[in-house]
Design a protein around this nucleic acid. Structure first.
Lengths: 203, 203, 203, 203
DNA sequence: TATGAATGAGACTTCATTCAT
DNA sequence: TATGAATGAAGTCTCATTCAT
């Protein structure tokens, strides 16, 4: 989808930026010269494709989110069964947490990307598309759960059901950030606990 | 607690920084001259009390979190009854969300302050104290719930119970960030939904 | 004359540069990419024909002056009669003033092209050829005036006579630059005044 | 006049810029680091006093013109007698021509400072004040000439009289720019010739 | 102790020039 | 021959930090 929207050079620059962020460099601390080195292009080239450093970084973040949401979507759709789909979601989150880039995490948890990188405020509509996609996934998951008789139909209202899924999901992602404090719990137990919460909540 | 640790001047500078952040200025975008103006001191004075801008901002963030956690702690302790305490917690979150500063939110949701402001990495120990305090609150809440017979004793393990409270809490805070998308739900309904989830999860 | 010296492509580039200058763009502010666009050639092509941007602009300026001096020369030669020739000169100046390019003006008034565009310093000899041509015109005008008995033969020395013509000419060109301040005078009156000065000076 | 308008630091920066221009550096070729070195201040200091390099240079040019016009005014006023005043004017021009900075020259000759340095366009009003001052000088000179009976009262209209003085003046300044071509004429002869033209024109 | 004028390192960005096509 | 994508040197400007007062 985005692959057709962006030229090869733009994508090379995006990948350079993403690489830097995955190395743990904060978007505010990224220098144009870092990007040029990471993307293996001249500094000037970046300005042939983007109006400013901020635009390049903002679009790189959106590009990454786009890809990740897209990938998450198809991975989850591919899985069969409510539990399998939910676990796949948690695995995706676990993988995202392990790279240093916090985009998907922040998107999932807070809708707070704009605060993370203020220049993203200009791209609000792009972000809402991602949220829509995520809510589509939520609906899909609920449908399967009902079909399989694992969760009760029409429990609570739409807000309740969406809130449950996003709460459980973020709650799980927290585990990763407090691994040092929760050292006695392993990832499988954490997943099981989250699944248990989900089932209780939707019955 | 912190009041005795910090001189009056340091606190004036902290307040200047906090004021800027509550105005919506990203910590990375704060200039020393902004701080000096907001705190009504000379630029040089800041360097009489802090080694660098980053130190000043990092300590200001910790100072604010410290105060907020402390205040949250005593507000919740003061309330009587499980439901009242939980609702007080949600009210506190609602208030925090409405100021522009995302520190408490990020602390609660992601343990991800370091990524929010990379210079905080040097102060990890300070952050764990805050997490301890929060877990103390969680324990306190659970205890009261059990006493009142609202929730079942020894449901799941410690990890499960803590995960439940933090998931529900963050799930609620999400509401605020997606208010535009959830426009049909008002805050009271959102609180009620979160309470319902909590009860289900702990029974 | 210059038409045979320069290839078609070079002339296209010259015309592009001249067009830019007539639009009011200062030679120091002209970019190679502007020239390429205006001349409708690739940027690289400019370097196939000129060693540097400065050379291209300098030669374009000289090319324009060359053409203008040449054109002025033949227009004035073509006219019959002292007064007619002088008025034709003033008309030419008026036309030059109305385009945004100040080359002829500066050539006439100050010999100060080098200061206008410092890179022209390397082309001093080219400029003196133009000055020679202009002095030829002055001599021609004086000759006709004497023949017609309008001005006195051998009044003052060569310096005086040339100085008179160039003073009167530049004095007229000033009118154009201070049109806002001299709004009560129209161009015909200004011409008449200049002619009156010329006659007095040479009798 | 300007001395009270500008802080010492601003004047130091102006003098640095003027020094550079008198060395023959074109305003378009002046670098901020050149100014800093010439004014013996840090690069940043320039931006404490001016919004941009262009502002600094533009105001420096106006400052210089202001001072020069003021100085010329008082030097000419101080002289007694029509011829002495006129010669003083020519001496001033001669001195101006000998420094490399062409501001006064361009002001006198073309009103064309804006074209010399395009950024001056924003300061047009300042320039008209200088032109007013110059016309005051012209009026003063004419008055004295009439009083002394050297020139005829009410010869021509205002335009004619002003045009005469400015034509003669610029005509003289040309001498300096074509000294190489007029090598046989010395400055005294050039002055005498210009005076002769002036007298003829105004009788 | 407190200040803010001054600094200059280092950031972003532009654009003349090159060179593979 | 002609091009324009790519480059990186060099420019402008910002801002954390210092230090004389």
């Amino acid at each position: 989808m985005s692959e057709v929207l962006y030229s090869e050079k733009k994508i090379a620059i995006f990948n350079g930026i993403i690489e830097l962020m995955e190395k743990g460099i904060n978007p505010y601390s990224i220098k144009v010269s870092d990007i040029a080195r990471a993307a293996d292009v001249g500094k000037g080239t970046i300005y042939d494709y983007f109006a400013s450093k901020e635009e390049a970084i903002s679009l790189a973040i959106l590009y990454k989110i786009d890809n990740e949401v897209e990938a998450a979507y198809s991975r989850i759709k591919k899985k069969k069964g409510f539990k399998e789909k939910f676990y796949e979601g948690l695995y995706i989150i676990a993988e995202c947490m392990d790279d240093n880039m916090s985009t998907l995490r922040m998107l999932l948890s807070l809708g707070g990307l704009q605060e993370f990188y203020e220049y993203l405020r200009e791209y609000k509509c792009d972000l809402s598309n991602h949220l829509l996609k995520i809510h589509e996934l939520f609906d899909h998951l609920l449908e399967i759960g009902i079909e399989e008789g694992i969760i009760v139909d029409k429990i609570g209202d739409t807000y309740y059901r969406n809130m449950v899924i996003s709460s459980v999901t973020i709650g799980f992602s927290q585990y990763f950030h407090q691994r040092n404090f929760n050292s006695q719990v392993n990832i499988e137990d954490a997943m099981e606990a989250s699944y248990r919460l989900l089932i209780k909540a939707l019955n």
